[in-house]
């Protein structure tokens, strides 16, 4: 059974049609990359797929799996430390133990930063805290909007590895990135969807 199916999705913003007739089916073990220039509608499509944008969205979007969405904003409270941000993350469907969270933070090279307020961390470290959610969530479908932003090369390698493990374990992924695909993912060029308008 597919994790997500989008059929004939059309997105309009005001009187402007951004995308037309986007079709994709994400099955277990699949990685899809949305590509296109800035402003083409990658984030709008991601938000529509996540169920966040409904106004101006036509077509059918069906999700058959729990969802983990990581947008441009990391959804972290600057006054809370990394442990608290992960323990109390609003979208997480599991009550992660402190041990799990410490392991997740160690995996993103933030061991020793558990008790520091997130506001005191660098942008790259904050992104790593946000990405540590991947390890404490049971969601099978990941929607990651520009997940490599602000990451150094070791962070990008770590994320590559997590994505590979996720899809090998039966998960699915849609992500946006301006970098060339690193996993042999299937691509949707949104420039073509725009030309269809």
């Amino acid at each position: 059974m597919p994790l997500l199916t989008a059929s004939d999705v059309t997105i309009e913003r005001g009187d402007r049609r951004l995308l037309a007739d986007v079709n994709l089916t994400v099955s277990a073990g699949e990685i899809w990359q949305l590509v296109g220039a800035n402003g083409v509608g990658k984030t709008s499509l991601m938000r529509a797929l996540a169920g966040l944008a409904r106004l101006g969205v036509e077509g059918q979007i069906e999700r058959q799996a729990e969802l983990l969405y990581l947008g441009h904003a990391s959804a972290l409270k600057p006054s809370l430390n990394a442990m608290e941000n992960l323990r109390c993350h609003p979208a997480c469907d599991v009550m992660a133990s402190d041990d799990d969270i410490e392991r997740a933070l160690a995996a993103v090279s933030l061991a020793g930063h558990e008790e520091r307020p997130v506001g005191a961390l660098s942008a790259g470290q904050q992104r790593r805290v946000a990405l540590a959610r991947l390890l404490v969530s049971s969601a099978r479908l990941w929607l990651l909007d520009e997940p490599f932003t602000a990451l150094d090369s070791s962070g990008c390698d770590w994320l590559d590895e997590q994505i590979q493990q996720h899809v090998e374990a039966g998960g699915g992924l849609i992500f946006t990135s301006h970098q060339p695909s690193r996993f042999g993912s299937r691509q949707i060029d949104l420039e073509l969807a725009r030309f269809a308008c």
Binding site: G51, L52, G71, A73, A75, A91
Partner: peptide
Amino acid sequence: ASDYEDGSLEQLAIAP
């Protein structure tokens, strides 16, 4: 306001 700015509202909206 802060939830809207830092993306927490989006996460609340997609929470199960």
